[in-house]
Amino acid sequence: MKAEYNFIANIIEKNSTVLDVGCDDGTLMEFLRKNKNVNIRGIEISKEKVQICIAKGLTVIEGNAELDLKQFPKNSFDYVVLGQTLQAFINPEIVIKELLRVGKKAIVTIPNFGNWKVRLDLLFKGTMPITSSLPHEWYNTPNIHMCTIKDFVRFSEIINFKIVKSLALINKNISNISKSNIFLKNLFGELGIFLIENK
């Protein structure tokens, strides 16, 4: 996941304020704090993960992005990061809107369900795909709203936000997604990375 972090670090300006939503064990927070000297906060639903973050000296609040983002006023942060968790929310639309209210910009990464391995799994096995980045069975997966790179682009049109930058992660390499190559990026991309803002 180093490539993903590097990309996120590349778009975040030095000394900015950042909120990592679903910060997990704080790996990205530490990375950004060290490399970009950002003033970074985290919000994480798991008590165990919050404890790990505290042990790393990170400022994290235990909370749920769907319920607890509302306590932050408009434009509280320069960037809000949502790493590979959009698909786990009950209402991704509300979450995206909240991210763009709390942050001036948001960075959202999604595991791409359009990836060829996922497609082949379903096509040949006829069972719900299980891959290294999507390791759960259908009945116990936290990922209840999987989407593809293409879906996310469509989503931006439907709920009306602007994609400033879109990239695909393929084999640890990052490449731009454009209108002309989206078919291939959606087929080979393991991860979609989007910098978004309000229109």
Binding site: K47, E62, G63, Q71, F72, P73
Partner: peptide, 18 residues
């Protein structure tokens, strides 16, 4: 209290202990 602090961008961490 956490909410009141976040509302003004104060530096606050929070955890509920089991």
């Amino acid at each position: 209290i956490v909410i009141a602090l976040n509302a003004i961008g104060a530096n606050v961490g929070f955890v509920e202990i089991e």
